[in-house]
Design a protein around this nucleic acid. Structure first.
Lengths: 141, 141
DNA sequence: AAGATTATATCTTATACTACGATACAAATT
DNA sequence: AATTTGTATCGTAGTATAAGATATAATCTT
């Protein structure tokens, strides 16, 4: 059981190491984590950021200031509560995030459509969908 | 075709977002990249590091100095060429890297062994192995 | 063996990132 | 009107990032 988990992790990291984008612009660790949260959650404000990356609200505010300066994110305000900021990714921010967390589209295309049969491609998609389904509501300890 | 690639990337990033480790110690972006290279390649020295993360050799040397200070890596020297440093991950470094790139073992166990049938688990392993096989020798543009 | 090359290390300098306490302020709640 | 909430800014401080200049030891070249 531990063995199988270990194998899967090895496959996971190897695949990412091989298929990720090579060219990566300068961005900090905290920057990426923040962009990820904004992309994956909705209605994210300063407080949520501070919570997720475990820093004080003022530090979170500073991080957002830098990301704003780089045009990676932009702010809107909640219509319900005018104090509350709602952060969204700009197109640039979205691109930067993808180049740091997605698999390289060119490489994926080559693998899926040049090196695989329709059967094999279907297997991959099925397996990922299944894992995604089960991952959605795993308890978050 | 583009659509399928996009879907797969979406699944990939969602799965990672859900299943990664929550507790992450302080480490910089460059730090992680360097640990990854040391883990995935062999006989890595200062020059290779500089090359992969695209900085000058002196900057790479400084990075390694910091990682040494944190006991994430240790140095040996090549027996063939005594000038050449060979970097290896310490146990601590290996742990830190895993908490930043692997899927959370506890979550994986729960999903694979509590929420899946033997059939389903087999499907996942098969698909990942297939993708891994094909990813190994994709051209690195 | 002398000179050139290679691999790394160190020093200096400059800028950016990270983090937090203190303070401020406007919107919302009581 | 007073309090709470969500965010922003200022001051301060430590660390990270990066590269040029310089140094050193091992290896290769001639």
């Amino acid at each position: 059981m531990d063995k199988e988990v270990e194998v899967l992790n090895h496959l996971w990291t190897d695949i990412y190491y091989q298929l990720r984008y090579n060219h990566q612009e300068k961005i900090t660790h905290q920057g990426i984590r923040i962009l990820q949260v904004i992309e994956k959650e909705d209605e994210v404000g300063i407080k949520e950021i501070a919570n997720v990356i475990q820093v004080s609200h003022n530090t979170a505010s500073e991080h957002i200031k830098r990301l704003l300066g780089k045009k990676y994110v932009f702010k809107t305000r909640s219509s319900k509560d005018e104090r509350k900021v709602i952060l969204r990714l700009s197109e640039i921010g979205s691109d930067v995030l993808h180049r740091h967390s997605n698999l390289d589209e060119e490489k994926l295309k080559e693998i899926l459509f040049e090196q695989m049969s329709d059967e094999e491609r279907k297997l991959i998609l099925e397996a990922f969908t299944l894992l995604w389904e089960r991952a959605k509501d795993v308890r978050n300890s």
